[in-house]
């Protein structure tokens, strides 16, 4: 009896992201020993700034994946949002343009993804794969393929690259968005509904949850995060490129899954997502420091994504694995 209790305790006491956290710590220790430059203030600052945008996108992605869906359009939406803001900034003050962009782009993107997936019930993978193409295309069309220079102003710079007092602005954005998202998932009825829809959609509906509206809402959340990411990228680059964020969805999805969120939904945390994306960012930063060609980075990300899925598989089915080992 006490045995059962103990193993159950061990199962629930360890959060699903503890594995990747261990890896992250291990990576930092190894790099700190062999490449002291890795833990210099300057480099830590770099890592935080490089991780900020993927983390914000990953937080939105976590909502989508928790319902059992996925949002592949985030990279393109980031570019679309940046281009949208750069054009708007030509007509109205930048601070107002930021607000309008946040509302308008979130409404457009969330409206399209959300109603096609949530309301009509189309497959999230296919819908967001399509909008990945659409919004990238629109960004190219509107800019005619040219990078738009933008004067980001104080606010946008602070969001994307600057400091607020001694603290890097992107770090603050991450912390605030992360805390809000974490609070919503853990302590509101909407958050519980997100887990319920991903865990068992039929049960959620029969329990009286409006599953369509939950599924629709998560794509608004993801769109809002990607839009914010686009605004942050302008602060970082001082320009809006239609190519911005290309391929970013790979790193974001990989980070979310590395962080212990289950691809089929129902299980996952914001903390895990943050850790997962920081892990990927550290890996790619380390590759750069060591002097490995940047072409290796997507390969590393891809390999780690598959590793994360394999890890997840074994964590989920310890009994099956144990049985197989026993049979050998």
């Amino acid at each position: 009896m006490s045995n059962v209790g103990l193993s159950r305790l061990r199962m629930t006491a360890l959060p699903p992201w503890s594995g990747v956290l261990m890896l992250l710590v291990l990576l930092i220790i190894v790099l700190a020993i062999f490449e002291p430059a890795f833990i210099s203030m300057g480099n830590v600052n770099n890592i935080i700034r490089a991780a900020a945008i993927p983390v914000v996108l990953g937080i939105g992605m976590t909502f989508a994946i928790l319902t059992g869906g996925i949002d592949l359009s985030v990279g393109s939406v980031l570019a679309f949002s940046g281009v949208f803001l750069s054009i708007l900034a030509g007509f109205i003050p930048i601070s107002l343009a930021v607000l309008v962009t946040l509302v308008a782009v979130t409404a457009i993107v969330g409206g399209i993804n959300g109603s096609l997936i949530g309301r009509i019930g189309l497959n999230s993978f296919v819908v967001t794969l399509a909008t990945l193409g659409v919004f990238r295309g629109v960004a190219y069309l509107v800019t005619n393929g040219k990078t738009q220079t933008v004067d980001p102003g104080v606010i946008v710079t602070a969001l994307g690259d600057g400091n607020v007092g001694p603290v890097p602005g992107p770090l603050l954005v991450m912390i605030v968005i992360g805390l809000i998202a974490s609070y919503v998932l853990r302590s509101t009825y909407f958050g519980r509904d997100v887990y319920a829809v991903g865990g068992n959609e039929v049960a959620a509906q029969l329990a009286g949850i409006n599953t369509r509206s939950v599924k629709m809402t998560v794509y608004f959340v993801s769109a809002a995060c990607a839009t914010l990411g686009g605004i942050m990228s302008i602060g970082r680059m001082e320009s809006a490129a239609p190519t911005a964020g290309a391929g970013l969805e790979l790193a974001v999805v990989a980070g979310v899954l590395l962080g212990g969120t289950r691809l089929s939904g129902g299980v996952g945390t914001i903390a895990g997502t943050v850790i997962g994306i920081f892990f990927l960012t550290c890996v790619s930063n380390a590759l750069t420091i060591i002097g490995v060609s940047s072409y290796w980075q997507p390969i590393a990300t891809g390999v780690l994504l598959i590793a994360a899925l394999l890890f997840d598989r074994f964590r989920l089915e310890p009994s099956r694995r144990a049985k197989k080992i026993k049979e050998r």
């Binding site: 519980r192 865990g199 039929v202 949850i209 129902g266």
Partner: peptide
Amino acid sequence: YKSAVLDMSVRDNLLL
């Protein structure tokens, strides 16, 4: 298939 959200806590299931 229709009622239990197995990965969810007893609490959340009961109050679903």
